[in-house]
Design a protein around this nucleic acid. Sequence first.
RNA 1: GCCACGGUAGUGUAGCAUGGUUAGCACUAGGGACUGUGGAUCCCUUAGCCCGAGUUCAAAUCUCGGCCGUGGCCCCA
Length: 420
Amino acid sequence: MEFTRPRGTRDFFPEEMEKRRWVEAKIRNTFENFSYGEILTPTFEHINLITAKSGEDIVEHLYTFVDRGKRKLVLRPELTAPVMRAYVNELQSQAKPVKLYYIANCFRYERPQSGRYREFWQAGIELIGSPGAEAEAEVIALAYTILKNLNLKDFTMHIGNIGLLRKFLKNLGITEQSNFLALIDKKEHDELEKQLKFYGVKAEDRKLFFKIISLKGNTRETVARVRELFQDREILKEMDRFEETLNYIDNLGVDYSVNFGIARGLDYYTGMVFEIYAQKLGAEKQICGGGSYSLTETFGGKATPTCGFAIGFDRLILALDKDGVKAGSDNDHGVYVIPVSQEFIAYAMKITSDIREYKVCEMELKRRKLGKALSYASKKGFEYAVIVGEEKISLKNLISKEQVEIDISKMKTSLNTGHR
RNA sequence: GCCACGGUAGUGUAGCAUGGUUAGCACUAGGGACUGUGGAUCCCUUAGCCCGAGUUCAAAUCUCGGCCGUGGCCCCA
């Protein structure tokens, strides 16, 4: 084949698009129901926006190019940075909180595999300027509600707290924390042990450290355990705050487990973090990630607490498929209009045009004989055929195969009342 | 960036180990017959060895490289 798709991209045909649009609509409705407004930023940005947020090393995973004005640009690899950039540029003086959502495509130069493409879609939100536990709780509840509304069964939510880890590391005298958080996230415990020793952390504190990051499971027990393990005032304060968030989502009936091993490996996360997995997806099972962070100052704005998440739209679709969720609407099967011969084409076109006022309608455009035309109509899933010939018009139900002659003036009534 | 497996009409496949006919079959699509009522039957047509190099008298078949696909590793903002 001479012309092919670029690697890691996909063509979506009508059948799949119907499903994707259906899922998208559900997500959009839920966002809007929580009073978020849509934002769309440019498909490409200046490369320094991305490197400011994620570091220089990220460049090898980016689609970059230089334009005719010698500007270094990048196809957006995610939407948090662009959205926060736009907020800093234009929305800082809006009434808080500012609630934004997006559903858009992103681009990353990575090796494609199951659930990973070079062009993919993300659906997410940023709740800007609300520092409270109730804000965090609402964000978590929103992610949860979306999956529930889509009827996804196979998913688990895991909630952690980077603030706690940060304070703990600080107590141990470790101020350069990003490396540690990355190792925690990757669960490289051997390397962590080595690093802790390097920093001169005492054996009992090391033990405590590993105890904390392996804690997971039932909320009350886990949180109580952390309280037991620490006497530090700052940490207990962080725990109070964390527990408040958990209380709110308990109250809303959100199902989750606490996991202090979630570190998300990123410098700008400040407190609560969460991830949602669909186990059936295997290696690329994470379908949602988010948490509380602060990024506005990085982009030259006033430091503003923000909480957000992003759903991997393509993975969500895969998860819904594996879960057997039927995505897609019961569509109107429509009407197929067939002129029996050339002289009735004009009349058939007029009838088609009239029917389109109230129903999906397609007309035979290939001048096929009646038999073939009917065959096409039933193959394409039309519910009715209207046969236009001589002085009479016939309405045929393609499912029951019954056919009657009808008066053109009664067409709408017959189609709408579901003639059989 | 790394590893495994794979790549034959639009789709699914046979052929490949043992190089040698005109690369076969099914479905789909287009056309026709059955001379204005279908999902049928019959006939016809379009269309293929991923790309390149090598070995050889001869490559879909063997070798190497590339590209693409699937899955995994790394990574995952």
